[in-house]
Each structure stands twice: as C-alpha cells, then as structure tokens.
C-alpha cells in the first residue's frame, strides 16, 4: 500500500502510523455531554466502501493526514493534510 503524502510525495505504507477514523478531528465541546463524547471516543462505522482515516507520516515529514480510501477496492481517493497549521 502506498499513500501520496501532500508534503513528501508517494510513500510506502511502512512510513505511516494509522490512528483511526477521521471522526476524531471533530472534537466535541467539553460540555457537549456524555452521549456526544461517547460517540466521539468509542462509536465507529465500519463501511464497506469509502472511508476516511487518520494517518501520521511518522517516518516522513510528521504530518497528520486524512486519507479517503475504499475498503473494498483499496483505492486511495484522496490524501490531505489534517490540519491547517502546516504551512
């Protein structure tokens, strides 16, 4: 598997660390209540098809990435920086 890091270019999967669903980008307000936090922390979809994941290019530039890919075909559709603070 290869991911096209927006900073470094296409790299082998071994350079990346997988975190999980990109839902983790949408951190609830501290007072959003237990249901919202439960969803954020624990509940995940398991789609057969398109999914958005978080990957860290830990052996490369160190950027956090949002990868849109298809779990059935393994096609990688998009690979974007997770944060704006990345110049």
């Amino acid at each position: 598997m290869r991911l096209n890091c927006p900073i470094c270019g296409e790299r082998d999967r071994r350079e990346f660390y997988y975190k999980g669903d990109a839902v983790e980008l949408d951190r609830p307000d501290p007072n959003a209540g237990s249901e919202a936090w439960d969803d954020y922390l624990h509940n995940r979809d398991n789609p057969a098809g398109e999914t958005r994941d978080l990957w860290h290019h830990e052996s490369g530039c160190g950027a956090w990435l949002v990868v849109t890919r298809n779990t059935l075909t393994h096609e990688v559709l998009r690979c974007e920086l997770a944060g704006a603070n990345t110049q």
Binding site: E24, A63, W64, L81, N85, T86
Partner: peptide, 13 residues
Amino acid sequence: THLEWVAQALRPD
C-alpha cells in the same frame, strides 16, 4: 506523536 496530533489537527489555532 500525540503532541503532533494535537497541534496539527485539534489546536491549529
């Protein structure tokens, strides 16, 4: 890795 995550993704401000 966690600090990178927080700085880039949660608190880019």
